[in-house]
Design a binder for these strands. Sequence first.
DNA 1: GCCCTCTTGCGAACACTGTACGCACGATGC
DNA 2: GCATCGTGCGTACAGTGTTCGCAAGAGGGC
Lengths: 238, 238
Amino acid sequence: MRYGGRMTSDIPSVWARPRRGREQPALSREQIVAEAVKLLDSDGLEALSMRNLGKRLGAGATSLYRHVASKEELIEFAIDEVYGEVGESSPDAEWRAGLIISARSVREMIKRHPWVAAVLGQIGLSYLGPNVMRLSNHMLGLLEKAGFSPGAAEKALSVLLAYVIGAGVGEAAWLTSLARSGLTEEEWTERLKPVTLAAAAPYPRLVAAFTAAQENSDQDTFDYGLEAMLDGLAARRP
Amino acid sequence: MRYGGRMTSDIPSVWARPRRGREQPALSREQIVAEAVKLLDSDGLEALSMRNLGKRLGAGATSLYRHVASKEELIEFAIDEVYGEVGESSPDAEWRAGLIISARSVREMIKRHPWVAAVLGQIGLSYLGPNVMRLSNHMLGLLEKAGFSPGAAEKALSVLLAYVIGAGVGEAAWLTSLARSGLTEEEWTERLKPVTLAAAAPYPRLVAAFTAAQENSDQDTFDYGLEAMLDGLAARRP
DNA sequence: GCCCTCTTGCGAACACTGTACGCACGATGC
DNA sequence: GCATCGTGCGTACAGTGTTCGCAAGAGGGC
């Protein structure tokens, strides 16, 4: 006996008939994308399957295809969705402070949604999404305010985003390995330390650097590189 | 009738018995990894399946598991394999010139193997591979030669690699979309132009910047950001 | 009331995936 | 000659993305 099937003539009662159709809110793309983001956040990239997602929405897997052309397209939507969380500085902020706010905000977003970093290299053309466009426009405005010509500002923006995304990829890889380990951050760090030192053993300089760098926090390192990059860019204004 | 099976008692002839065992070179991990890289390069990440790879090696899919614990481990090996292609400057090179050589060499490597960029965010702990260690050691040496303390050099290295990898992710995404389109680079660029401008249409500044930036070459943009980052780092030496 | 079209959900099916298991076989050590 | 080991692989299982066709409700025209 299977429950929840179509059962047109199974049991002749309204109460047995599943409520469907317009009686309750139907599936919508927004709803699907939002649930996909939730699933990706909690269970990671490999847990995102159409059947799985459908189950969460109380729908069949293939129903999703009415609102989304493919899983890849769904991921593209999800990427833009989380880009929507990235904050902007007030439009009259000083250029450098404004860029720092946006860059940090992208980093925070990636830390909340580590799967984006993993997926950005696989999905071409993710920069076309409306939220990415909005963010690009905002940061370009700040760069032009700093004195860059439109063409130079675009170049500076690519370079800045490359740094932010590269840092995000590194942190995402770490967070993914941490999540899969099932341990706390301290336990995982502790367990990894001897492995790292063993791998670095042939190179004494590497061992020394890793040991010395243990108290570098990720946030500090990110800001360090961000400031360095901004200094370099500032010096290149006409 | 199935050919290639075990057929112990099928046909009583030496010629029908498949030549196996030590008569011909057996599978080895090196061979498997090398073939995986070739497959990834030519057909992309989604074409890498154990059955597919086995076929290329004249072996069954499950045979590979004698030499590699899982597909994920295979990819980790493949990552380190391509890091092995990254060149080093001569050890007595000037620090800045040496770092530029390594950074460009990583970029070239990613352009030859775009799938690495897509996979770096998914595979935690890829930095443990011997070739990555060798590269890190080399670049750390250059940074220490520049005057950084071990701890600061490690920070500078993370930051530098973040930029290089972020740039690589962007280029890999582009190359992947290009390969999937099946078009030439010119055709694909031309076909994408109106789409990009349409997506940017709500933001006149974005349209202007994209238009002005059309002759920015990827190599120039990469070098621009690399020099900016190195300037910023150089200014931070003690 | 009726019919006709359009949209939406979905069960079944297809080709494929990663991988566990156990058997068969050649090579090797005693 | 015999036991043991390493290796290849056929089979099987649970799962994947996606296509197809059917069912059913919604809305429009009369």
